[in-house]
Computed example of a mutant assay.
Amino acid sequence: MDRPPLGKTRHRPAPTASRHGLLGVRARDFDLDRAPAAPDLAGLVERHWLVRWDLPDGREGSVSLLPHPCVNLFAAGGPVAVAGVGDKVFTYRYSGSGHVFGVKFRPGGFAPFLVGPVARLTGQTRPLAEFWGGADAAGLARDLAAAGPDLGALVAVAEHHLRAHRPAPDPEVERVGRIVRTLLHDRSVLRVDEVAARFGLSPRSLQRLFQRYVGVSPKWILRRYRLHEAAARLATDDGPANWSEVAADLGYFDQSHFIRDFAAAVGMTPAAYADACRRRVQPVSA
């Protein structure tokens, strides 16, 4: 008998990850496509994604990302890997022609597939074989390779294998999702203790819950989503920014805290980043 479906089948949960995160403004030499998860998997999977490129000989491209608080399963033509939450800017370099396909789990969504806290994956990339076994991981890699660079076919393969490894339902995943949606969407939330109180948790209990299910703290997520928004805003602003206004709009008490957080996460000040975006040059490197 099949296990009960994961997530809610009647509708897809609201987003728990922003659609920002790619850094810089350039003429893109790659295509990025996204697809929603099937309803029975949408409680755990935020979306599927596919990056494709076709560059002339001798040319190299790169893309930089300020990571989300999400675990990703991805395949780039070889063994399938699992990437934990990234703790710093990630730059991917590519040449020739190729593609990378990935499954972005919701914050907390990978925890039921994993024995132990998700925090042990933070900042790391590990072979999927460590979690599913060598034969099953190799089978997924083989089926994804056979699907080619077609997003619909890749999604069908990935979801077939996810269902084969369907974990038992875990109500804590849904609770983590509700909390993360609050951090993402509710601009009135400025402090983690406010979130803890809203969901009937002590700050310490909330911290433990997120280390177990997400891999980073609620404070980290709140700050990261605000910085995603800041980077997107700075990339589209035409003139000098009013930093006090930007900081206040993002929920910071003062502009110095905002500038310090942005520089620590992106590797350059907001002013330098905005200037690079206006000049349409790559603002970060690795």
Rank of each mutant, 00 (worst) to 15 (best):
S18H: 07
S18W: 06
S18I: 05
S18G: 12
R19C: 08
R19S: 14
H20F: 14
H20N: 15
G21L: 07
G21E: 01
L23C: 03
G24T: 10
V25G: 00
R26I: 10
R26H: 09
R26W: 06
A27V: 12
R28S: 13
D29G: 05
D29N: 10
D31T: 13
A35H: 10
P36W: 12
P36A: 12
A37I: 13
A37D: 04
P39C: 02
A42P: 00
A42K: 02
G43H: 09
G43I: 08
L44Q: 04
V45Y: 02
V45I: 11
V45A: 03
V45W: 01
E46G: 03
R47I: 00
R47M: 10
H48L: 10
L50T: 04
V51L: 14
V51K: 08
R52K: 15
R52D: 03
P56F: 00
D57W: 02
D57F: 01
R59P: 01
G61S: 05
S62K: 13
L65K: 09
L65Q: 05
L66M: 12
L66E: 00
L66T: 06
P67F: 05
C70I: 10
C70S: 11
C70D: 07
V71D: 03
V71E: 04
V71K: 00
V71T: 06
N72F: 11
L73A: 08
L73E: 04
L73D: 00
F74G: 03
F74L: 13
A76Y: 01
G77F: 00
P79G: 11
A81S: 06
A81F: 10
